[in-house]
Computed example of a mutant assay.
Amino acid sequence: MDRTFEEMLVRQCAPTLAGLKPGSLFCITAEDLENVRKKVRFWDQRLEVLGLSVRILLERREAGSALVYVYRGSQLEQSLGATDRRGFLVGMGYRGSGTEQMLDQLAERLSAQSDFPHEIGVFLGYPLRDVVGFIENRGQNFTCCGFWKSYSDPNTIQRCFACYRQCVNIYVRMYERGIPIEKMVIAA
């Protein structure tokens, strides 16, 4: 692993660890994916008491990589339960109402489709307008770009991006000072 699992967890998931968004995603490469699986199990158990879950959504053995998803179950459930988001996911072919069922379907789509399922933005807490805008515009014609491509009011989204960047910077500094990840998490 070029960067440690923990460093990736902090750098890529700080807004989720801080409770600012329901989920974050990162790709990690490793010579031995069993080590990644062990890290995922370790951190899932460690963060569960704080309201977070860690799971692998996709493994690519040939590339020696895994797509790791960190999420706040209660926040994600509330987000996915919103009428507009639920309707969007049903329209995209998702079935069932449980968060874990939806995540299982997302994982299946990640492994079965050659194209990345862009509805993943809903699971990451992106505004629905931006997820739909990205799909409809095939990633073009966005109003601004940062943590994702946005099709919303650029001023509002830029403030959100600035908040996320500040959060990442603070969390990375805390991590570099040796503060345990568990101490950085805002409990659900």
Rank of each mutant, 00 (worst) to 15 (best):
E48I: 04
G23W: 01
M92P: 02
Q45H: 15
Y69I: 05
D84P: 01
D104W: 00
L57Q: 05
G87L: 14
K39N: 11
I120F: 08
R61F: 11
R85Y: 04
F88N: 02
I56H: 10
E62A: 11
F116N: 05
L103I: 02
K39M: 13
Q105V: 00
L47F: 14
L17I: 07
V70F: 02
G96A: 02
M102H: 09
A112S: 15
I120L: 15
M102N: 04
R41K: 15
R72K: 05
A63L: 14
F116Q: 02
Y69T: 07
E59I: 11
L103D: 01
V90T: 07
G93K: 09
E108L: 11
G64D: 04
R85M: 07
L89S: 01
L52E: 00
E48S: 15
F116T: 01
G23H: 05
L33W: 03
Y94R: 02
S74P: 02
A112T: 14
A107Q: 12
G98M: 14
L106C: 05
R61T: 14
E34Y: 00
A63N: 06
E31L: 00
A66R: 03
R72H: 08
S79M: 07
G73A: 11
M92R: 09
G23P: 11
V36C: 07
A18H: 13
P117Q: 03
G93F: 11
E119V: 08
L80W: 03
G91S: 04
K21P: 03
N35K: 15
R55G: 11
D84V: 10
G73P: 01
P22W: 01
R61K: 14
R109S: 11
F42L: 12
T83F: 11
E119Q: 09
G19P: 09
T29H: 00
R95V: 05
L57T: 01
L89I: 03
V54K: 10
Q75L: 15
L33H: 08
L52Y: 07
G73I: 08
L110S: 03
S79A: 13
R85A: 06
F88S: 10
E48R: 15
L57P: 04
M92Y: 06
S97C: 06
Q113C: 08
L17S: 10
L80G: 01
C27T: 15
S74M: 06
Q113L: 12
R109G: 08
F88W: 12
G96Q: 07
F116P: 06
L110E: 02
F88L: 14
D84F: 02
S111G: 10
K38Y: 07
R85L: 05
R41H: 10
I28W: 01
R109L: 05
R55I: 03
E62Q: 15
L57R: 08
S79W: 09
L76V: 06
Q75I: 13
T16I: 13
L89K: 00
